[in-house]
């Protein structure tokens, strides 16, 4: 079996203009100090779709996600080779402004991390830091809060006490809020690193439903350990193994007719 990743999706003709791919990763290598965590990753993530990423623990899923919004560099010892083009712009270009990247690319973490402030302030946080000089008035802010909370299906539950501390919400509600607070700055890409793994089955189902609702408007890349989740809640799926992309194709194909033996072994639970 060849070592080349199977990339059945790249051969199709472009359908909707030049930025058919939201994230175009070219030959990405990444080292933590001397330890290489990513090997020659080539990934084209389609715009407006939900792409899931699966693979055994330690295979580099989080590492890849964290390179896409450049938070890995906070660790001084991270070194990167290759490019990541987001809507055609290389985000590792020295001229790129980090704040703009973060604005375009929102991230949701495994542990919900709402700020220790009111629900309202959480939703408005991003909006406020990016709109210093464009004075927004109260009514406008209320509208932003309502829209964001409606989108994440949280509005009806919290509309009567928006001043409540966000940290007192249930984990499911916190995670929804963490998604909601990304929306007012209008990101185009949402990265989610195991967003449901701290939630119970009911919460997982609720957040999954929400993520499904968001597709189309946002390009979503979601890491998960839950195979069933990947299968039912994503359109394309990436399988990674030991820092390499093994397979990237339509989710249904990956689960029904995996092209590689490793993929088949993994989805059938033979290792991982």
């Amino acid at each position: 079996m060849s070592d080349k990743p199977v990339n059945t999706n790249t051969s199709e003709a472009p359908e909707n203009g030049e930025h058919q791919f939201a994230i175009d990763t070219q030959n990405l290598d990444l080292w933590y100090g001397t330890f290489q965590a990513l090997f020659d990753v080539n990934l084209k993530i389609r715009q407006g779709m939900i792409t899931s990423m699966i693979g055994p623990s330690g295979c580099g899923k989080s590492t890849y996600l964290r390179s896409v919004n450049r938070i890995n560099e906070r660790l001084g010892y991270v070194r990167i080779n290759g490019n990541i083009n987001v809507f055609g712009n290389n985000i590792y270009d020295p001229a790129v402004e980090l704040v703009q990247i973060r604005k375009e690319i929102g991230m949701v973490f495994q542990r919900p991390n709402p700020l220790p402030a009111s629900i309202r302030d959480n939703v408005l946080f991003g909006h406020r830091i990016h709109n210093k000089h464009m004075k927004t008035n109260k009514a406008e802010e209320e509208e932003i809060v309502e829209n964001a909370l409606r989108t994440v299906l949280l509005w009806d539950k919290v509309k009567d006490n928006l001043n409540r501390k966000a940290t007192q919400l249930s984990l499911e509600e916190q995670q929804k809020l963490c998604i909601a607070r990304l929306l007012p700055v209008k990101p185009k890409i949402l990265l989610m690193d195991e967003p449901c793994s701290a939630l119970d089955p009911k919460g997982t189902a609720a957040v999954e439903e929400l993520i499904w609702e968001l597709r189309g408007e946002y390009t979503i890349l979601i890491v998960t350990h839950n195979m069933a989740q990947a299968r039912r809640a994503s359109e394309e799926c990436i399988f990674m193994l030991m820092g390499k992309v093994m397979e990237h194709t339509a989710t249904e194909d990956l689960f029904v007719t995996p092209a590689k033996k490793e993929t088949a072994d993994y989805i059938e639970g033979r290792f991982g």
């Binding site: 919004n69 938070i71 906070r74 980090l98 704040v99 703009q100 990247i101 973060r102 604005k103 929102g106 991230m107 973490f109 542990r111 991390n113 709402p114 700020l115 220790p116 402030a117 946080f125 991003g126 830091i129 990016h130 963490c178 607070r181 990304l182 700055v185």
Partner: peptide
Amino acid sequence: LAFREACWNMGATRWQTIRKVVLPN
């Protein structure tokens, strides 16, 4: 640290993070 990460990931600068989240807490 999770509070700081939340801010940085929304594009807040270090100073915005310090002033709005770290210092008040």
